[in-house]
Amino acid sequence: MTQPFPFSAIVGQADMKQAMILTAVDPGIGGVLVFGDRGTGKSTAVRALAALLPPIRMVESCPVNAPKTADCPDWAELGSKKIVTRPTPVIDLPLGATEDRVVGALDIERALTRGEKAFEPGLLARANRGYLYIDEVNLLEDHIVDLLLDVAQSGENVVEREGLSIRHPARFVLVGSGNPEEGELRPQLLDRFGLSVDVRSPNDVAERVEVIKRRDAFESDHTAFMSHYTAEDAKVRDAILKARKRLAKIATPDAILEDCATLCIALGSDGLRGELTLLRGARALAAYHGKRKVHRDHLRAVAPSALSHRLRRDPLDEAGSTTRVVRVVEEVLG
């Protein structure tokens, strides 16, 4: 099982799949947070995302995946300067990762053996222009979270320690997953994720059976299964590529902008990030569906995932914030 489970073979979970596709169409949306029960295929979906992303062009030996030699950081000792096509990086941030591994640190091997001061880039460098995936994001240590927030905000990683002074671009899309029963996420980090989706185990028996069958086929009849779904994945990837091209030309009527603002005011979401994400998400969805302008339906489809995590937490609300968003969307958009 060296290849991950294909994205198109994931049964149901429409919200989660839509959110992932939207960030692939427009990375500017700012990532996805997937929260849900155990055994619902959260990490499966995130790992499958890698296969959907179009490849990037980059300098072969560049540690931060820069597109041109001129963009490579000056501390990098470049080997080959050839421009190559590589899959979009999807970097796993393991829970136990130390600060050193995340931001980069002194290259210990060279310091010890040759007495040289050199920088060894960390995970943030490798994730530049790509995705940073944090499984069980709610269990991440606070100081790593602080670090990530800072870098995700500024798009630049600054290392000032151990006699090193290094900076390099670190623009990445945060993808997180977690189980709400194991702990809540700080609102500051929640806000950094563009979209957030709640996943549940499917209740429909037929759907559950289909999940089992596909997973079993994936394990036992790997080649046939993969050849079928790799083709399916390719279709989704093409659609994403087309949507990316179309994205700039999507018209946004003023009425839609007003709708966005009205929605966010009605929900009392904190800050303006909600509106912006909602709008970007709706545009990306319109592009993915091959439309020329944003329609209210797009807002309706994106609103729950774009806004539900930005509401003030109301512990007394039985239904949860997604339901609240849906209710307000109905009231406002009719």
Binding site: D37, G39, V205, R208, V209, I212, R215
Partner: peptide, 26 residues
């Protein structure tokens, strides 16, 4: 080899006993 019915039986059985996680039938 597993008959498609077998996979189904296990999946349905899991719901009968209120087991939410899909890992159980797998």
């Amino acid at each position: 080899t597993v008959a498609p019915d077998d996979a189904m039986a296990l999946a349905v059985l899991a719901t009968t006993f209120g087991i939410d996680s899909l890992r159980a039938p797998l």
